[in-house]
């Protein structure tokens, strides 16, 4: 088996006395869909915030491609190939749909101030290339028709996909998706399912937080279960589903549903 591209080792963080995460570790490999599940408040988003450099953990380490990146700010992590989406959407609402994705290309653009100010031909060429690439990505997530609309005009489910397109624009090696299917209808969830599988097939390590158990059980290669900030279980979908503790603590009413889904 290849070495993990993204890894957390014994990560912990507290907020004003509340231990939101304690001694959590995981490792995900290229091309895999690694899911993190757990009840509300389990610490899934907090783990993402630590891995993506928004929070600094009180203990533990984060490794990207084997290197310690624990203290790095998000934009440097992005430069090393780590991107994410947000549970509570973080859309650039004053920009168009296309421009949102163009921002995602930032790292791959020449960003010199003087050429930009003088609008040199190289800048114009680059703008065209960025725009073209952004359109491709919008087509990939099925939003090409809305490219020139203000982002604020899109419905919720479409915004979720817009965030995925924006994250993909950076050509990440690791993609963290925080509840991409939340608030989506069955058709949209189907669509997201297909997207995630395709992205992973292209060699990206996808780390997924999701409450939709059917989706998780169907596409995950590996699942980590968190409860109250601690690891409750870990394993393949089949192992996790069979774990009595998981069933008791979390799956509960979802269990039957999940078992049914996997048929």
């Amino acid at each position: 088996m290849s070495t993990p591209i993204i890894e957390a080792r014994g990560v912990g963080i507290s907020f004003g006395g509340v231990r939101a995460l304690d001694d959590v570790s995981f490792a995900a490999r290229a091309g895999e869909v690694f899911s993190i599940i757990g009840p509300n408040g389990a610490g899934k988003t907090t783990l993402f915030n630590i891995v993506s450099g928004l929070y600094r953990p009180d203990s533990g380490k984060v490794l990207l491609a084997g290197e310690d990146v624990t203290a790095l700010p998000p934009h440097l992590l992005a430069a090393r190939g780590l991107c994410r989406t947000f549970q509570n959407l973080q859309i650039f609402l004053r920009m168009t749909v296309l421009e949102n994705v163009m921002v995602g290309r930032h790292l791959h653009e020449e960003r010199g101030l003087i050429p930009a100010l003088l609008r040199l031909p190289s800048v114009l060429r680059q703008n065209r290339a960025t725009r073209a690439r952004a359109r491709e990505l919008l087509a990939f997530v099925g939003l090409e028709k809305r490219a020139d609309d203000p982002a604020g005009a899109l419905p919720y489910g479409a915004l979720k996909r817009l965030e995925i397109a924006r994250a993909l624009a950076a050509e990440p090696k690791v993609l963290l998706l925080d509840e991409p299917a939340a608030g989506c209808n069955a058709v949209e969830t189907e669509e997201i399912d297909r997207l995630i599988v395709t992205i992973a097939e292209r060699g990206v390590a996808v780390v997924l937080v999701e409450h939709d158990m059917k989706l998780v059980m169907r596409i995950s290669t590996h699942i980590l279960v968190l409860n109250h900030g601690r690891i409750l279980a870990e394993g393949t979908p089949a192992e996790v589903r069979a774990n009595p503790e998981v069933v008791a603590a979390y799956l509960g009413r979802h269990a039957a549903e999940a078992a049914h889904a996997s048929g």
Binding site: S52, G53, L54, P73, P74, H75, A78, A79, C83, R84, F86, Q90, I91, F92, L93, R94, M95, E99, M102, V103, G104, R105, H106, L107, E109, E110, R111, L113, A116, L117, L118, R119, V123, Q126, N127, T130, R166, A167, A169, A170
Partner: peptide, 29 residues
């Protein structure tokens, strides 16, 4: 106007709307 239609211009408009999203997209805010 030139600045607006450049990567830096887009970065500035982006961080106006969401600093976290801008940082995660690789922008040195």
């Amino acid at each position: 106007l030139n600045l607006e239609d450049s990567p830096l211009g887009r970065a500035l408009r982006a961080l106006h709307d969401s600093e976290v999203a801008a940082r995660v997209a690789g922008i040195d805010v």
